[in-house]
Design a protein around this nucleic acid. Structure first.
Lengths: 349, 349
DNA sequence: CAGATGAATGACAGCGCTAACATGATATTG
DNA sequence: CAATATCATGTTAGCGCTGTCATTCATCTG
């Protein structure tokens, strides 16, 4: 049994202790005061190099692990960032989370995350739950938020970054993202420019950002005098590949003359492409398919997918960087960061 | 400004306070002692219902958020579980993480995660980092672990679940997963049974579990007297769809007579299928393709993918359940849970 | 060499909460 | 009705760490 391998040297802790090695256990072994060990850990240059070495040895021998709860209490800083996203099982958000994670690692911050599953009610709950950890900063998804959530975030009095979108709604503190409306419009523009006229849209989940993409898309169709209703098919069911095929099938059943389809996201687009393959519909000759996000497989699928690349990882890392800068007292260039998007034209449209 | 909307009633905190509302602020407003407010929160049935209502009102008015660091220090329980996975950006692990998350939510545990990026060195670092948060329990990936990591985990003296695999190596405390060796063997068995004879394997990343899948696969090939070397192509590059196409192309360049390929995971299999489509190779007539994990798109792709379904979500939720049970003092049936796998035969092989 | 300076270490209190025990009020019992 | 049990609330101390100020001792300066 490795635990407490120096147990005989340890202080007799009160009954409430779990018997873990503490700072003063280390101090006792070395023969210095606790504060000196604390300094050796947090401000190494403030303690004599030789002493420091002895302290480090003792820490290693005793397998001492600092107690962050105690440290947090003493410093009123938890060194954690809270992240509120719709769901971790959507590649979009796991990419964002990776950006956040990579940025915080190396800055000695921990990441606490929670899923809202696209519900503003859940969001209130998880915000309350996360704030109870007193994170030093918080990242939430989207600009649509309940008054209660907003009030909680404000009274937490910590820096906040709302991610994924800019240019719509009120920003509480800071924000990083891009314009979903413009992205949708930009895809419509492209498809129109390619000569398509019976242009459709299929969407699942239809959260606020999907809706804005759709509105941007439709606005351009309208501006060109194209049909803005009959080629649109959406559902609030969560998005997946299979659903893309089903939506395409449903749309074709009612509107067989549709000649181009913008899919809410790449997953749906994959499903749509697979369905076209089964129906021996030639893409893009008979029907064009476009997606959104430029996921991993989009460049490899046949035909390769025309889509919009969104800076998911960068949104995460920038949001975390904004928080960390703010927490370190460094001023940020701007409170709102528009990272844009990029139309990637490939073979499918 | 919403913060401290009842600031005038608040105690004059010492200079070290951040001016947040505390338990005793609430107590003062209600006119009771701090411990009573604490009980109202943690043991509501122990305080008079009328008083409880007044306390709850005060909490709401003051926007009081409990300080978990202080609570942790007092109770030596953090109500957090730590999770060590290779990378969040692999769908496999985001599914696992979702299972963990869903299980912990509702049991009032927070989840802290860290990525090792498939490096045992990194793993040591992140384990140390996570243990500094004194989680109540910890989940790590795989049974291959350094002595130092093991020693840290042991001296933390908290329940541990090693996930993803069983039946190989030493389990430190508990484990949940399935046998990768058997899964690989099972796929070989199936392909042999289907009449394929020049059976290959392509793999990326080639972490310990991938290696065991490959060894299980090869062992069956050997048992049937089939070639176990020339149709094998692996790389340690991280896996993605595009790479699947490249590996297939490389393998075909050297061994054009390969008639079936087991891909390390579904991503590679997608890439391989796409490459076959571009080469107009008919699947499964000219070449059979099989995958691993049964991701979302596998049922929809053309041809639909024969693969092995792995209980990713269940591994996560079971691991979290094991920890929570242990922490609540409830005995677990078994320290090791083999959740098995399922061969899903579809059109590609 | 008195006085000033700086480097290294220590003493003490307090961060916000809760475990453990103490107290007082009310209900219950033979 | 005294003895006892029960319920509701309070007092005290301490969880492990660090901010702040104090102390010690070596070094430097004119």
């Amino acid at each position: 049994m490795i635990r407490n391998n120096a147990g005989d040297k340890l202080s007799k802790n009160g009954s409430r202790s779990k018997g873990r090695v503490t700072l003063s256990d280390v101090a006792k072994v070395v023969g210095v005061s606790a504060i000196t060990v604390s300094r050796a850990l947090n401000d190494p240059e403030k303690v004599n190099p030789k002493l420091r070495v002895r302290i480090e040895q003792a820490i290693c021998e005793l397998n001492y692990v600092p107690n962050r709860a105690a440290r947090s209490l003493a410093t009123s800083s938890t060194q954690t960032l809270a992240v509120v996203i719709p769901t971790i099982s959507n590649t979009v958000f796991s990419n964002v989370l990776k950006g956040i994670y990579d940025q915080t690692t190396g800055h000695n911050y921990e990441v606490l995350f929670a899923n809202t599953y696209y519900s503003l009610q859940n969001e209130e709950k998880v915000i309350a739950k996360l704030l109870a950890q007193h994170p030093d900063g918080i990242i939430t998804t989207g600009l649509d938020i309940t008054e209660r959530s907003k009030s909680m975030l404000l009274s937490a009095n910590i820096p906040l970054v709302q991610i994924m979108e800019v240019g719509t709604g009120e920003v509480i503190d800071m924000s990083v993202g891009f314009s979903h409306f413009d992205a949708g419009a930009s895809m419509a523009q492209y498809l129109i420019g390619q000569g398509y006229r019976n242009i459709g849209f299929i969407g699942a989940q239809m959260d606020f950002r999907s809706q804005r993409r759709m509105r941007g898309f439709i606005s351009k169709l309208a501006a060109s005098g194209l049909e803005t209703d009959k080629y649109i098919l959406t559902t609030t069911t969560p998005s997946d590949v299979k659903l893309g095929g089903q939506l395409l099938a449903d749309l074709l059943a009612n509107q067989p003359d549709v000649d181009a389809i913008f899919c809410n996201n790449d997953d749906l687009a994959y499903g749509a492409i697979f369905e076209c393959q089964r129906r021996k519909l030639r893409i893009p000759e008979q029907i064009a398919i476009a997606g959104f996000n430029d996921l991993d497989a989009s460049a490899s699928i046949n035909p390769s997918l025309t889509t919009i690349r969104t800076p998911l990882y960068e949104i995460g890392s920038s949001a975390a960087a904004l928080l960390i800068n703010t927490l370190k007292g460094r001023p940020n260039m701007s409170k709102t960061l528009d990272l844009g998007f990029e139309l990637i034209t490939r073979d499918s449209a």
